[in-house]
């Protein structure tokens, strides 16, 4: 079984680490450090998250990136050899969408591979719907999905879609 490297990226607080913890079948490697900025949570990823998942006969290696732009060197390191990208964004923080687009452009310039978009925190008041996020990012709507990264059945959906895209790409 050929392992597939998938990069999970997006702005801070989108749920990247949560998604990997929800889905990984092996012990997750995380690198949480105490957050000193007001980012709405006590810790943040400073290097990477790593987990694995078997899906449709493939072994996926999920590599989560830090969300802050000061860690852009990790985006570059983790993009190496990636076969697909899951970009995660918060529906209730549309102001982070330009950052999301920067991250996507940055990683795609190093690893021009298929990507899908996962929209989280849709249960909050005043959110952008996945259609609006897709429009902003210029992503086909069918590659953009709302999800709760704490629920396995929802967290896995964008990865299923991504596998289809990687398959048709290959």
């Amino acid at each position: 079984m050929e392992p597939l490297k998938i990069v999970i990226t997006g702005p801070v607080g989108a749920g990247k680490s949560t998604l990997i913890r929800t889905l990984s079948e092996t012990e997750v490697v995380d690198t949480d450090a105490i957050a000193t900025e007001a980012i709405g949570k006590p810790t943040t990823t400073v290097a990477l998250d790593h987990g694995t998942l078997r899906l449709d006969g493939h072994l996926l290696h999920l590599f989560g990136t830090p969300g802050q732009e000061r860690f852009d060197f990790m985006w570059e390191i983790l993009a190496e050899g990636a076969l697909g990208i899951l970009l995660m964004v918060r529906a209730d923080r549309p102001e982070t969408l330009p950052v999301a687009r920067n991250i996507l452009d940055f990683i795609k310039s190093r690893a021009p591979v298929p990507y899908v978009v996962g929209v989280t925190h849709l249960d909050q008041p005043k959110v952008w719907q996945p259609e609006e996020v897709a429009l902003f990012l210029g992503t086909p709507l069918e590659h953009t999905q709302g999800l709760d990264p704490r629920r396995p059945e929802e967290a896995v959906r964008p990865l299923v879609r991504l596998l289809e895209l990687i398959g048709t790409n290959a």
């Binding site: 450090a33 105490i34 957050a35 943040t44 400073v46 290097a47 830090p66 000061r70 860690f71 060197f73």
Partner: peptide, 24 residues
């Protein structure tokens, strides 16, 4: 701990980057 520069002595232009990398 999350990679922001707090204090520095040396070349200011790499200090910010080095702070993030030190945390990583």
């Amino acid at each position: 701990s999350d990679g922001l520069p707090v204090a520095q002595l040396g070349e200011s232009e790499i200090a910010t980057r080095l702070a993030a990398m030190a945390a990583t």
